[in-house]
């Protein structure tokens, strides 16, 4: 299979960047996942082939990293942080609110594939807690109200 031209360009650069091409595995999977939506069997076989590793070796890696997934997430993957600093500043309130508002639970995708939700570990926004991420986009000092604003914006088709 082939990926989009910009991604192919990125991959080509990656393969030149590492003394051993297997080093490109983790980032290649990440960028491929972003483009395809999930790590499908086809993506896995393709990347295994390009890097000269076995499908099993790729699967071992995918299973290890928490950002990699083999099933599609929602168009907007909402990640709420509840680790210590977030917890101290209301992270669980946001998490409960998120579940209620989106009507889905941890690692679930809503019916139309628009939103998915995940309670995640520390993301390095401790001083601006509680934090959340929608796809790769950061939101700091989240409250139930600001959560609603972000979600509504996305529902209107705005946002990232």
């Amino acid at each position: 299979m082939t990926f989009s031209a910009p991604l192919e360009k990125r991959f080509a650069r990656m393969l030149q960047s590492y003394p051993q091409k297997r080093s490109a595995l983790v980032p290649m999977l990440m960028y491929a996942q972003d483009e395809v939506g999930s790590l499908t069997d086809e993506v896995i076989a393709e990347i295994a082939d390009r890097l000269g590793v076995t499908v099993l070796q790729v699967n071992e890696v995918i299973g290890y990293y928490s950002m990699m997934h083999k099933k599609p997430l929602g168009q907007y993957h909402v990640q709420v942080y509840t680790n210590i600093s977030c917890m101290l500043r209301g992270g669980f309130k946001v998490w409960d609110h998120a579940r209620k508002t989106l009507g889905i639970g941890h690692k679930q995708v809503d019916a139309d594939g628009r939103f998915s939700l995940e309670e995640v570990e520390c993301i390095g926004s401790c001083c601006w807690a509680p934090a959340m991420q929608v796809n790769y986009d950061y939101h700091h000092n989240v409250t139930p109200e600001s959560f609603d604003r972000v979600i509504n914006e996305l529902k209107k088709g705005g946002g990232q």
Binding site: T54, V55, L56, Q57, N59, E60, G63, Y64
Partner: peptide, 20 residues
């Protein structure tokens, strides 16, 4: 042969076969 691998992590770690 390399038919066995280690998948997932932490307490969910599992030995996995090469064909899923």
């Amino acid at each position: 042969v390399g038919a066995l691998g280690l998948n997932y992590r932490g307490v969910n770690s599992e030995i996995v076969p090469n064909k899923g």
